[in-house]
Every structure is written in structure tokens, then in C-alpha cells.
Write a protein that binds this DNA or RNA. Structure first.
Lengths: 225, 225
DNA sequence: TCAACCCGGATTGTTTACAATATGAATACC
DNA sequence: GGTATTCATATTGTAAACAATCCGGGTTGA
């Protein structure tokens, strides 16, 4: 039965979600046995999941020591940010295809959820939805390969933001998302692209690469099936 | 000891090189036991390598049936091509940093090897070196993250070209590489970007997505340590 | 003749036990 | 008192045996 692949995907998704929502801090140790208990699984499957996540740069495997949530270096952080900016800005400037009515509807739906999360001061949901907005945009204007690439980049950005975020700043203005959609519907690619560039630069300006905080949280009931 | 990671990297590299040089055809079965013998390894390590490669879309794992060299669908092929074009064309239009003298030297060195391979009618070397030229370009003008992304895209393109290449065509003109470097040294980003677009479109025009050939080769001494 | 069925061999998937390694505390030494 | 060393413990890494699954050939029966 191919249900084992399903189970591994479930575990990987749970870990990724925890990283995305910044519950799992960079540097956290991920003991195999403990994860196996948390997810009602066994070491072998956990091991495969960790190997997969290490290929996505979310987890770092240190031989003989175990798995840890990755701690991207300042250089890696800069590279990830620049890469994401290149992809998203370029795609908006010259979309692979036009935004369909259905695509616009999907984006509006996400924006509505964003507004709701904002209302409820649900920071975790806002982070998640903001990522979903960008991913949907890429899927609609681009293709699935670009989407999966950006998917990974967004995950890595979550680690980066957790590590290097300056205090007293609020990243990723959701108001930009609204303006972005308006510009796209008006076929104003030049302005949309410029706005996306400003939007992503805004996130970068909230980062401070000088300090390297040792934010190593212990995973306990952070991870719930 | 961390030598096991080394060994797995060696095996993965050998498999990737075989795919890149188009010795390993899409659809080929990759039996664990056979690979373990070829690489003087054991099933467990082969298994981990295959899992890693499946994350890179080079290998497809079919539960209960085993590992196969991936057969990208026409849709996936189009998406990979479009993604690579987006990245490389955009990067040339607005390079992340200027081409250094050292970078130019590296590119010239690869071009010299390309000319040599062309002289010797070494098609395999030419394919490999062409990829290296593009990767070096991205590393010099962009960053390592973009490089590793493109690394995977080029591998996937190898599979795509093997599957869908039209007969009687010669892909990837190495003369373009020369012109590209000249334009970059002259800081003519607009023309360089345009040339790259034509260059990649040239490769795409050699493809025919209508036919789906069942090019399943048996791996025997194709893979040599 | 053809289709469905069944079974033996081969390959993959999983579990288990065991070996190797790193960690941290206690101890000995300077 | 501080530093180095040693040993017990916990965790990771590996190998091998076992179970499950898939594939192809052969048989049976309409």
C-alpha cells in the first residue's frame, strides 16, 4: 500500500507548517525517537522525512549528531531573498499567462481570509495566508515548477525572518496585496512589478544581519498531529 | 564518521551525470540491488540516494514497484523550460552583480573546453560543458541559491530533451556562448538578455511534444564508478 | 483462441537488533 | 579553582532478517 508515502507527507507538512508559522525556531534539535512518538510513527519514516526536508534546506543533518532546523547564514539569507525577488518581480513584469477570472477569485478569497485574520489579530494565520497569496499568484501567472521553487524559498524565508527580524517591525503589509491585484486586473504589469519589488524590499528592510540570535526552542507540544 | 554522506553524494553525482549526459534514458528502472553492486554499496544507501533524487524530480518512486528515471510530461517540460528562461533571461537583464574579471576567465576556460570537445566531436562533453557555462554564468551574475535551482532545472531539461528531441537537430549552439560573453563584457545587458532568450528558445524549438517515445534503456555498464 | 486465474520467483518495504558515536557529568589531576 | 580525562547514557547509524508486494509464466476452463 502507498499509504506510507501519505503518512510521510503528513509528517513533513506538519513540520513545514510549524516552520512556516515560526513555532519551530531555527537551530531546534529534532530527535528521531521523539518525533516518532509525537506523530505516532516509527524512526525509519521520520528518518526519511528528515532526509527529504534536508534536501529542501529546511533541516540540516549533522552526521552523528542528528537533525536540526536549519539556521541560514546571512549570505544564504541574502541569496534566498534575492532569488525570490528575481522570480516574483520578473514574473509580474512579463507574466507567463494572463490572470484569469478564476485566478482573481482565488486571490480575493485569500485576501478575505487575510482580512479576517487581521481582524482577529491572528499573526500565525496572517503569515500563512500571506505566503498562500504569493504562491497562488505564481501558480496563476506562472506555472507549477515556479510555484514549487517559490514554495521552498518562502519556507526558507520563514527561517530567515525568525532569525534576523528586527524588533518592533511588522513585515509583509497585506494592503500591498490588494493594490497588487488591482494593478494586475488593470493589466498594468510595469506598476505591479514595481510594487512587488517594493513589497519584497520592505520585508528585507526589516531584517538585521548583524545579530545572530540563538533562538533554539525545545519542541514539545508545539507539534500536534 | 561522515564518509557515508560522501559516498552517497558520489553515487548521486554518478547518477546525475549519467542523466545529464543522456546515457540514462527516462523510464529506465533502477533496481536497488543492482545499483548497490555497481557502486559497491548497500541497499540502504542506494535507497537514501534514490529518495533524494526523487525530491529533485530526477527519479520517480513508484510504491511497491521501485525507482525509475523520471519521464517528465509535456506540461512539466513546458513549465521547466519556461522557468529556466524566466530565471536566466531576467538575471542577464538585471544582474545581481557585475561580471568580474575572474568570472570572465572562468567562462572563457569553459568555452575553450567546449571548443576542444567540438573539435573531437565529443557530444557528451559538449552537453556537460554547455550546462557548466550556464551554471557558472548564474553563479557569477547571481548567487548560489539561483545556481542550485538552475542546476536541478538543467538536469530535468536533460530528461526532457532526451524524450522529446526532434530528429536531425543540433541543440544549444555554442557560438551563442561566445557572443553572450562579449555582450556582458560590453555591459550590454539588454542585448545579452535578448540573446539568452533566443538561445533558450532555440533549444525549445528543437522539441516535439507530440510523440512520447518509450526510450527505456537497460542500465548495465552505463554506470561506472 | 482467448481470457481469467493462480502461483513461484524476484524485488521492494519494514522491523528488529546491534554497533558506532556524541553528550554530559563525575572524577582525577595540575 | 580550573582544566583535562573517563565513563555511563542517550541518540544516531547500519546491517540483516523478515514480510509484503509485484511481475510473468503457466494452467484451466469456457
Amino acid at each position: 500500500m502507498g499509504s506510507s508515502a501519505r503518512e510521510e507527507a503528513r509528517i513533513a507538512d506538519a513540520l513545514c507548517k510549524a516552520v512556516l508559522e515560526r513555532r519551530l525556531a531555527p537551530g531546534s534539535k529534532l530527535p528521531e525517537e521523539e518525533l516518532a512518538q509525537i506523530f505516532r510513527s516509527n524512526r525509519a519514516k521520520i528518518r526519511r522525512v528528515l532526509l527529504s526536508l534536508s534536501r529542501s534546506h529546511i533541516v540540516t543533518l549533522e552526521p552523528g549528531r542528528g537533525a536540526f532546523v536549519s539556521r541560514p547564514s546571512p549570505q544564504e539569507a541574502r541569496d534566498v531573498l534575492a532569488s525570490r525577488r528575481l522570480i516574483e518581480v520578473s514574473l509580474l513584469a512579463q507574466p507567463y499567462r494572463k490572470l484569469s477570472a478564476q485566478g482573481a477569485a482565488r486571490l480575493r478569497h485569500i485576501m478575505a481570509q487575510e482580512a479576517e485574520a487581521h481582524e482577529k489579530h491572528d499573526a500565525i494565520a496572517m503569515i500563512y495566508l500571506s505566503g498562500q497569496f504569493h504562491l497562488t499568484l505564481i501558480e496563476e501567472l506562472g506555472n507549477r515548477v515556479l510555484k514549487s521553487i517559490t514554495d521552498e524559498l518562502i519556507l526558507r524565508m520563514s527561517l530567515i525572518i525568525t532569525m534576523y527580524e528586527r524588533q518592533n517591525t511588522t513585515c509583509c503589509l497585506s494592503s500591498d496585496h490588494h493594490d497588487l491585484l488591482e494593478l494586475l486586473l488593470a493589466d498594468n504589469h510595469t506598476e505591479a512589478s514595481a510594487l512587488m519589488a517594493r513589497h519584497l524590499e520592505g520585508i528585507e528592510s526589516c531584517l538585521d544581519f548583524n545579530r545572530e540570535p540563538a533562538t533554539t526552542t525545545i519542541l514539545s507540544q508545539i507539534l500536534k498531529c
